[in-house]
Amino acid sequence: MKMLINVPETVVADALRGMAAAHPELNVDVENRVIVRRDAPVAGQVALVSGGGSGHEPLHGGFVGPGMLSAACPGEVFTSPVPDQMARAAAAVDSGAGVLFIVKNYTGDVLNFDMAAELAEDEGIQIAKVLVNDDVAVTDSLYTAGRRGTGATLFVEKIAGAAAAEGQPLERVEAIGRQVNESSRSFGVALSAVTTPAKGSPTFDLPPGELELGIGIHGEPGRERRAMMTSGEIADFAVSAILDDMPARNPVLVLVNGMGATPLLELYGFNAEVQRVLGERGVTVARTLVGNYVTSLDMAGASVTLCQVDEELLRLWDAPVRTPGLRWGM
């Protein structure tokens, strides 16, 4: 598989150097792998720190900036960052108002953020944590590591970031983050497997006429494989899987998210089908976002995330944001 890289060992560092050059408003520490708002710490504001494996760009580094994250910690490709990174980020962004860790529910992320929280608390930094676990494709039981964190991460980071920017206290920003997660569900499909730089070939074998339903964002296969379906059939399947798990009583934010290798033309077409299904199911759509936000390297496919919002969450969603990956109102 051809890739636009030098060598697999330096892909993350190379991308960070490029990001530093493109975004002078961010302080990109290539050696220690921490991306920080240049104006951090912001006096009187709770700081938000997230992170995770690389390969999901623009998540998380592309969401650093006013109205969203204060700092992000990129790990190796599909590998959670190490505790030292988050501890360093927390120290760089804490204004004294405390730091909220936003953690996607993967065993590695949870363990490393927990260790980082201990390190930061030893330095006198107040840490709170929101775990994102929105993927309905995984059975949430004692027999799995629990539901994965996927598309809802964007909603949590944006909405909690807006609450922090308003000067709300740590307990409140944490509560809002949890509310967003609890009100969100996602479902994803893959049309092709992902190729990691380290491996150089697809991580699983997906024949041309088939698709994987219920995939994650790390190249892990899904729960079920079927003969290829149309955009409309996929929308029916994905939206039903979500609404069966979380009946929508409130208006929803819709994220139709590309996995990396699916063109926007297809994503918009898929969104039309998603909106059709939501209409048929009587769900009111408050806002829709279509694009590549929580990706999985070069995987083809898409995910749908719905987040039920009340007036406050919708106001916070609409609040100004200025990051490389998401920008409006400022």
Partner: peptide, 12 residues
């Protein structure tokens, strides 16, 4: 190992 591996394997 904790400082360099990442993932679940690093802490474990």
């Amino acid at each position: 190992l904790i400082s360099t591996v990442g993932g679940a394997s690093g802490p474990l």
